[in-house]
Amino acid sequence: MSSHLRVAVPREQTGNSIRDSALGLVPETVEPLIALNERVWNGGAVRPALLELVRLRNARLVNCVFCRSVRYDVARADGLTEDKVAGVTDGYEQSSLDEREKRALVFADAYLKSGGELDPIRAAEVRAAFTPEELAHLAIALVSFNAASRCAVSLGGMPEDLPVMEILLSQTTC
């Protein structure tokens, strides 16, 4: 993984952490991306605390240091705790996460580790845990989280480690 950023960041900083990153070099895609991020967190059937567990599972498997260190304020306000975060390991089936949280991580793992393949029994368990509206929202959220993490890894400049830090949703939507 490259430790230096492979492209420049925009000279003009706006206070939005997405627009002020290298993604801001392309206004025609960064503005829709900002809007999508806002809708993922504010516009769907799945609560932010559960979305955050899925996002952190993605961050862990992609090994995005930035993404792993961040906690969204809206997720914490919704009840996310570091005890919950600690359950997002490879042994999550044996963790104290509740069944719905575990099924969300099964969904994420099928996407992240198996290219979308999922055996019929596990697929039926996932279907039983969520409404179609929730599954559609989870799908959009996961694709968006994964694209962002892999973008960060691909463009370089990743530190080896970062402390846990809270990010305000408003810093990514303004």
């Binding site: 290219g115 996961l142 694709v143 694209a147 973008c151």
Partner: peptide, 24 residues
């Protein structure tokens, strides 16, 4: 380069998610 990396993320992601949607 930025657009390419963004696009690959959504293309690859939609391929994966389409397969997962079919499995469900």
């Amino acid at each position: 380069l930025v657009v390419l990396i963004e696009a690959l993320g959504f293309i690859d992601g939609r391929i994966r998610m389409a397969r997962l949607t079919n499995a469900l």
